[in-house]
């Protein structure tokens, strides 16, 4: 019996003692990244079936850092509900899915947010024809929300604080919520303002919809990993930081090669010409070069996916660099 117990104990240990995520990813040969089921601008397949979007770029940047090849990613779609179990169970290595950094997710769910790749806030969208101009006029309205989100909690708080009633219609995915809204099953759709812009852009006539002025919450959206694997957390964190720092130094996909003998020391450190910063992360020293070359800096990714020239048309706002009036800021590369 004793022997049996020790066999059990050993195999339990073997089951759970998994190697570091970075080694797993390297051995596997590709990164497994969790994204939305489809939210144009953040993560959605384009016409030819390639995943594109701001969150997708985040995944690709990590692949570029680890493999020097941004295409080595397998995307897993997750709903607001399934995203956390999917990450916790190890089915994916990281999650980049419009996910708000909150205390309970960071601590109680056992995750680690490595940074913020989009500063957002929750807003409301209604049909223009309703003639509503403020969220406080929404007494008695039916509201479509996505389940398992911070959205539904903020919503309850907002209506409670303003002492007005509403009827919630909890829905699983953004697509279903959009159909319900367009069909008139609900009067209002509420989610992160970026998600509203994305939803609005998918309507046949975006002018039929207005986003109300109230922003009722802080939604810092960022990539996250399992808590405890700090080496892996560092890799994802510095992939994100690299994109922001690259924007600060004006390094772009187009000019990065010309900067290999720049006279700015930090640029040389970023590009792996000087110092062994990649090695500290157990990556190659040109990991940052690969990110910039293959994905571009934060601004390039932003303009390509959600910026003013895209259907979403979201200005930089808070997401501008700290030097341009925003709050985007990354620690130094040294």
């Amino acid at each position: 019996m004793k022997k049996l117990l020790s066999i059990v104990a050993v195999s339990v240990f073997a089951l759970s003692a998994n190697a570091g995520t970075l080694d797993d990813v390297k051995n596997r040969g590709f990164l497994k990244c969790g994204v939305t089921t489809g939210l144009a601008g953040f993560a959605a397949p384009d016409d030819s079936g390639n995943w594109t979007g701001l969150d997708v770029d985040m995944c690709r940047a990590v692949a570029a850092a680890v493999f020097g090849d941004s295409s080595k990613v397998e995307f897993t779609t997750t709903t607001g509900k399934s995203r956390f179990p999917t990450l916790a169970s190890g089915e994916i290595d990281m999650l980049a899915r419009n996910t708000t950094w909150t205390l309970s997710r960071d601590v109680n769910l056992g995750f680690e947010f490595v940074g913020v790749n989009f500063y957002d806030g929750q807003g409301f969208m209604v049909p223009t024809s309703l003639g509503v101009s403020s969220a406080t006029e929404l007494d008695g309205a039916t509201v479509c929300i996505q389940t398992g989100t911070t959205t539904e909690l903020n919503l309850a708080d907002f209506f409670r604080a303003n002492n007005i009633g509403y009827e919630a219609l909890p829905i699983e995915t953004n697509d279903e919520a959009r159909e319900n809204l367009f069909a008139g099953r609900c009067d209002v759709f509420t989610t992160d303002a970026s998600g509203l812009s994305s939803t609005r852009a998918q309507s046949d006539n975006p002018n039929k919809w207005v986003v109300l002025p109230e922003i009722i919450s802080k939604e810092p959206l960022g990539p996250l990993v399992r808590h405890g694997d700090h080496q892996w957390g560092d890799v994802v964190r510095w992939s994100l930081n690299t994109m922001i720092i690259a924007e600060e130094f004006g390094l772009t996909q187009a000019n990065v090669d010309d900067n290999m003998n720049s006279n700015i020391p930090e640029v040389l450190r970023i590009l792996g010409v000087e110092g062994g910063y990649g090695e500290m992360l157990e990556l190659s020293n040109d990991f940052a070069y690969n990110i910039i070359k293959q994905i571009g800096n934060y601004s390039e990714s932003y303009e390509r996916n959600v910026g003013p020239d895209t259907p979403l048309a979201i200005g930089r706002g808070l997401n501008a660099l700290w030097t341009d009036g925003g709050i985007l800021y990354a620690p130094p590369f040294r």
Binding site: L109, G110, E152, L153, A168, G228
Partner: peptide, 21 residues
């Protein structure tokens, strides 16, 4: 335990924070 996931039943008595219509 290893993944720092809290367990227990006390959450049942915490406020839900969301509405069910």
């Amino acid at each position: 335990e290893k993944r720092n996931i809290a367990t227990g039943w006390s959450f049942l008595n915490n406020p839900a924070g969301f509405d069910i219509s």
